[in-house]
Design a protein around this nucleic acid. Structure first.
Lengths: 356, 356
DNA sequence: TTGTAAGCGTTATCAC
DNA sequence: GTGATAACGCTTACAA
């Protein structure tokens, strides 16, 4: 085939109709699986479709049906205090290097691919890109949105809800908002971690928390304190990270500086595996053996947990399943826009490895 | 705003024209930035557009222009020997958990976002999904494809080239194919790694190679041997991995079993950081100190390199830049379909850290 | 059950 | 420079 081969896709319904000796409408009915078509004729039409290599033109179809068969996966990093301060590149690619991101993509794709739905990936990281997103959605190029929003101050969940765009949010919205969402039971997960440490005989517990401008960061810290209290304990220390590996290392240093006495802290809950990955070498170099001197539990069960040495005990979030469920709820909402909003809560599990 | 607010996006060119007191055609000209329109009228029209919150309907536009303003990022895992043998989930999500993937997404997005182009993510991992992809492309929902293909036996590069779809491939095609591509100078990168190890006084060199059914895996192994020969050396051992962390660990074990004498191997080139991440703890547990007993160099400079302990010396691939360039070449090709095919080669750099 | 015909919202080719 | 008007390829009443 040459580069100048017949403009593929240019065969129309009309062409098929001509070949099959029927009307355009009948071909359309066959293509769309209408039941009201004579089986014999259908055979003929199907043959004609195969012969002509017909494929429907999506744009034309969209124009009349006002649906597109695709959804957007929107990653919103907006609402952060730091507006990419000195990052390299300036582009907010941090999220794409988080193991979390890949799992979400995987989960969404797994759900939609067999349903003939496509996914377009969009990033929002400032006012301009948010504005562009809103425009894009109004242009009607997607039927709905799976929204990954990390920060509590993010305006997007509310805006999308108001704009009447079918949308499912990752995590409970920070402000009460009429929006569907899928969450993990953070409280239960953290409780598992704390209970596990206590069961291992640890009583001097500290935490490396997530950023307090995110719901996940806040909830996990609160749950940590709450569960500690239930055991009649109080935290020895709490240092805030930002869910990155580097911040985990920094937090560990801070922790050691604050509690220099050997054996001061004997159990550590780190609010994400990636931070734990950063923290472990720091502990190790400071002469603290894991788990002997200090038992460590992470959160997520991301690939970072297995990259840890020793392998990290962690609270598993079923991220892929949650992402699939987001896609599921979204597709339901698209199919029945006026149905009531639904949300799902997933239970985490404790994965015990060698770090505790 | 209620959930029943005015059907957003339903304001048409005609509506704007009515408000502005001009014809539909003129509004269209303004929207598309045509120069042949009276500045005064343009002002009026722009005001009307703002007043009505008009946004163009993409489907209608696509239908007539036959372009979509979006491209596909196609990840093709096809051509592997193992057809997801016993993987959990069966879905081929391996690629999404590779740090590589996020960097590619980041690079492509960075390039296209300011140009108003959108990206849809597609996965091909078997005959059926490949067939679906071809159909999808013919439906004309994207203007072109950035193709990430990992395996040498993959049919997709050839098929897309034949189908006359604008496409840019990651890496040189395994079979000579009329297709644009972006590659890294594997040979130069591996040479840096080997030279570095030799400069460190290492002479008993081994490698954990990538899978030999991928171009990257093959080229790096060949280049390793070639460069070794240039130094008058020969490899002590070469064990094949599959670019995953687990395979790196397995390879390290095999290596130790094959060369059990202490000090047998004093330098190790691992063909990807992720495999190095798996290999290091195995070496460590076997009593080999890194870098004292055995110096290790990786490839990629992915996040895995920093997750290593000690931090990994590695050959940096400018993945984001390469991905951006893929997008760039693709957009060029879309704009001028008959122009000659272009390819780019990027130079890697050596990032020296503590593992060697 | 099938065909006819009227749009869907744009862009593009013409005259003016 | 501007305005009719004809496509673009499809779905969908409505008629037959």
């Amino acid at each position: 085939m040459s580069r100048r081969s017949a403009g593929s896709g240019s065969v129309t319904l009309e062409d098929v109709a001509k070949v099959a000796g029927v009307s355009r409408a009948t071909v359309s009915r066959v293509v769309n699986g209408s039941t009201t078509v004579d089986p014999a004729l259908r055979k003929v039409v199907e043959k004609a479709i195969a012969a002509t290599h017909y494929v429907p033109n999506r744009a034309a179809r969209s124009l009349v049906t006002r649906t597109t068969g695709s959804i957007a996966l929107v990653v919103s990093e907006e609402g952060r205090g730091d507006h990419h301060g000195g990052e390299n590149p300036p582009f907010a690619g941090r999220i794409f290097s988080d193991p979390f991101f890949g799992r979400i993509v995987s989960g969404v794709m797994q759900y939609i691919r067999s349903r003939g739905v496509q996914m377009v990936l969009l990033l929002v990281d400032d006012d301009e890109s948010r504005h562009q997103l809103l425009g894009y959605l109004r242009q009607g190029h997607v039927d709905g949105v799976v929204l990954i929003s990390t920060h509590a101050a993010d305006l997007l969940p509310q805006l999308l809800a108001e704009a009447d765009v079918p949308v499912v949010l990752s995590g409970r919205p920070a402000q009460p908002t009429p929006i569907s969402y899928v969450e993990v039971d953070q409280r239960a997960g953290v409780a598992m971690a704390v209970d596990h440490l206590v069961a291992r005989g640890r009583t001097r517990l500290a935490t490396v928390s997530g950023p307090q401008d995110t719901p996940a960061g806040r909830e996990r810290l609160a749950a940590f304190r709450e569960r500690l209290a239930a055991h009649g304990l109080a935290e020895v220390a709490a240092v805030e990270g930002d869910f990155t590996q580097a911040s985990g290392a920094a937090a560990a240093r801070e922790l050691l500086a604050a509690a220099p006495g050997a054996g001061d802290v004997d159990g550590l809950f780190v609010a994400s595996d990636l931070m734990a990955l950063g923290a472990l070498p720091v502990l190790y170099r400071a002469g603290r053996r894991v788990p002997e001197d200090i038992a460590v539990v992470g959160f997520d069960d991301s690939s970072a947990a297995l990259a840890c040495d020793p392998p990290l005990t962690t609270v598993r979030q079923p991220v892929e399943e949650m992402a699939s469920q987001m896609a599921n709820l979204l597709l339901q909402q698209i199919a029945a826009p006026e149905s009531t909003l639904q949300s799902s809560m997933f239970q985490p599990t404790l994965v015990v490895r060698e770090s505790s």
